[in-house]
Design a protein around this nucleic acid. Structure first.
Lengths: 415, 415
DNA sequence: CTTTATTTTTTCGAGCCTCGAAAAAATACT
DNA sequence: AGTATTTTTTCGAGGCTCGAAAAAATAAAG
């Protein structure tokens, strides 16, 4: 049950609102903030004066303030980069990357490592993550005290409290409470995020005009993932990160999926599935562990060239994605879609069958008007999403304390 | 973008919170309200004193206050039944019903009418709705001034702003802005709701222990509908009421659905589909307009008796529902399910195949632990949901004004 | 170069709201 | 009849936002 609003919550919330207005707008003046938040000028003045004194905001006077209007010029407020820092970790197949981001959102340091995630033990996997964080924290250029948050994104299913990885295709290990492990190790609040959810968060920051309240980010990669924003909030399952679009059932009892079940969308549209179909292997053939990007590019090239099994494989992928999206649209109505990942570069091969399939579904009423965007590079997107999510936590918790406790559900407030 | 909190919003929100605490608890004392809302005793005292003076709450002293404890006895607060009244309209196949409900939630009058919705013209349909409301409002026992809300539920798709019916299986008419029509006619705020959503709302009020933050209500009837509550809020689509579970795709290109498409869940699990399969008709056979409840009961009886086409028809229905739920669970994770409607009485025939199918899907990991409840009578549930939704609007808007404007999105705040 | 107009930001008092502590009220126990 | 206990109200303190007015800072006009 929702709890009453105390008197002191008021200031906290309005402080958080001012901070988020500055983060969104870049260099808004106090007057602009008053307009977007609906609060009075006096309130904004009081709050921003506090925030400046606390070193959270800074006046960015001069600079490009070419005031053409007459009257007292506006003085822009900006985030003080030194107010805090966050770490964005991304763990994907055979790859671990970390970035240190200042409070204004600029990357100040980064590091990447190749691993063999599929064969690593539980302890090795945890050890690598802890080690890479430790190395960044030991960087003499970094004020350790200022590091206020760590966000770790992983390909796979996480719990809805953003504490643990439950299952992931990149490792046989399950149920690793990465967030708790990192918190215990470094004493810095941490969250465990799903990679596709972070893609969605990043898209929202990158292009708020296109990706605002309702949109879908689909990762076309070895597996199929999805990040979903509905009514302005990141969608998650009741217990896990949810949104396992790739494991909706396309054909009951159909092709063998990497997850061991049959007929999932991914069993037709994941890289391994396209590969399997292009090679004309049986639908029951064991999914291969990895297909290189180069191999997939070659496959796509051949599909574009001749009408052979490669083209048919992409057609089947499109069909599976189309019927899957159709079922999804039956539930949530159509929304803009971003296709992310290496195979998004082959979306030209996928789109015709996808649209044809979608037209046969409940979501197909407006199938013509559904727009697809492609973005072949998922990694920067995931990292950016992680960073923004961690920063939003800092905004809300550290600098406007008491609104939420530690951790925070993965569901509320798209970072 | 979310707007700042004004100083006067505080009182409004806390007033609304007190009212909703009373509605939920029945006869809570001021002390109990303070405990559940987290507000101080003095605040609750002040707010409830206001509300009593305004005739919204009343002290229900004496009655069954058998105080066993010593000390000053608690004095229970209750809703003043005369504070307001609402109308709950339910429009379903060939049937229109209305109930007048007082502010405390008691039905004070009702009326029902048989119609021939499938053949009625647009104006006739609207006319019947307006007429039945007018008759209730002209009832001399009713104080017209006190009627604060009308909620109309319909089987079919409504828009996400709760203004209009977009499409419905009970009539060939489309896009009727019932909410606006009723508001214009009577000058009373009205909303247009989806029937299955109202079922979910009602379940939440009836059994908050079982149906709290996440659950699914599925209507097994001529068609298949769903009401979904996620994270304590009624789930709706981005543009429409959404949640069209019945039109998720079970088998691409499969059986002919009433909606004209192929392979929808409903095309296997709706009454007409069970009927069609039991008669061993082609999957392409045109769906019949209606199957009587008696005929369905006879079908179920035969299915229980002998292992013939009737039993197979129910098996197919279970399979379709199972794979559909499996896909849904891939997105939202498993949650308690209530099976509502006449065919819920035949759930014993459906369940085995349903569980078998679900076990083959991503949601199947915990398939054993997913619990199904059945409730054969949907109509009282829909009416109750409508009533509670309308009353909640009154709570929030009329008696705690300014929090939201008129209408209200269908998505927020499960009534 | 001074004055005026314009726009942004700060200051200040008024009005609410919630809270904690103490008082008042109402009952059971001794 | 007095005491203990629990609920409810009262009252002053402290905070917050708001509107109006003042102050600040600049462009345009004379």
């Amino acid at each position: 049950m929702s709890v009453g609003i105390r008197h002191d919550d008021l200031r906290r919330r309005n402080r958080a609102m001012v901070i988020s207005a500055v983060r969104r707008a870049g260099h808004p003046s106090r007057t602009e903030i008053a307009a977007t938040t609906g609060l009075s000028h006096s309130t904004i003045s009081a709050i921003s004066s506090d925030l400046i004194q606390e070193g959270i905001l800074a006046e960015s006077r001069g600079s490009e303030t070419v005031s053409l209007k007459r009257g007292r010029p506006q003085v822009g407020l900006s985030l003080n980069p030194e107010a805090a820092a966050v770490l964005a970790l991304v763990l994907s197949l055979n790859f671990l990357s970390v970035a240190v981001i200042d409070y204004a959102g600029q990357v100040v340091a980064e590091e990447q490592r190749r691993l063999d995630t599929l064969t690593m033990s539980r302890d090795e996997l945890i050890g690598e993550c802890v080690a890479i964080v430790r190395r960044r924290l030991e960087d003499p250029d970094l004020d350790v005290q200022s590091v206020a948050r760590i966000a770790l994104a992983i390909q796979g299913i996480t719990d809805s409290h953003a504490r643990a990885m439950l299952w992931s295709p990149i490792t046989p290990q399950t149920n690793i409470a990465f967030a708790d492990i990192l918190e215990d190790e470094f004493g810095i609040p941490a969250t465990m995020e799903n990679d596709c959810n972070m893609m969605a968060v990043a898209l929202r920051w990158r292009d708020p005009d296109r990706y605002r309240d309702d949109f879908i980010a689909i990762l076309l990669s070895h597996g199929i993932g999805m990040g979903l924003v509905l009514k302005g909030e990141l969608f998650t399952g009741t217990h896990s990160s949810g949104g396992e679009f790739g494991h909706m059932i396309h054909r009951p009892g159909g092709a063998l999926c990497r997850c061991g079940r049959r007929g999932c969308v991914e069993a037709y549209a994941g890289n391994y599935a396209i590969w399997r179909n292009a090679r004309q292997l049986s639908e029951n053939a064991e999914p291969v562990a990895d297909v290189s990007d180069a191999d997939m590019r070659a496959l796509a090239a051949r599909a574009r060239e001749t009408d052979g099994p490669e083209r048919e494989a992409y057609r089947k992928a499109g069909e599976a994605l189309g019927f899957g999206l159709g079922s999804l649209f039956a539930l949530i109505d159509p929304a803009p879609v971003a296709m992310v990942g290496a195979s998004a570069a082959a979306f030209d091969l996928i789109e015709p069958a996808l649209r044809e399939a979608i037209a046969q579904t409940a979501g197909g009423q407006h199938s013509g008007s559904i727009s697809f965007d492609t973005e072949p590079n998922e990694l920067p997107l995931i990292r950016e999403g992680c960073a923004m999510r961690a920063l939003s936590f800092v905004d809300q918790e550290i600098f406007a304390p008491g609104v939420q406790a530690r951790g925070g559900s993965a569901g509320k407030n798209v970072a």
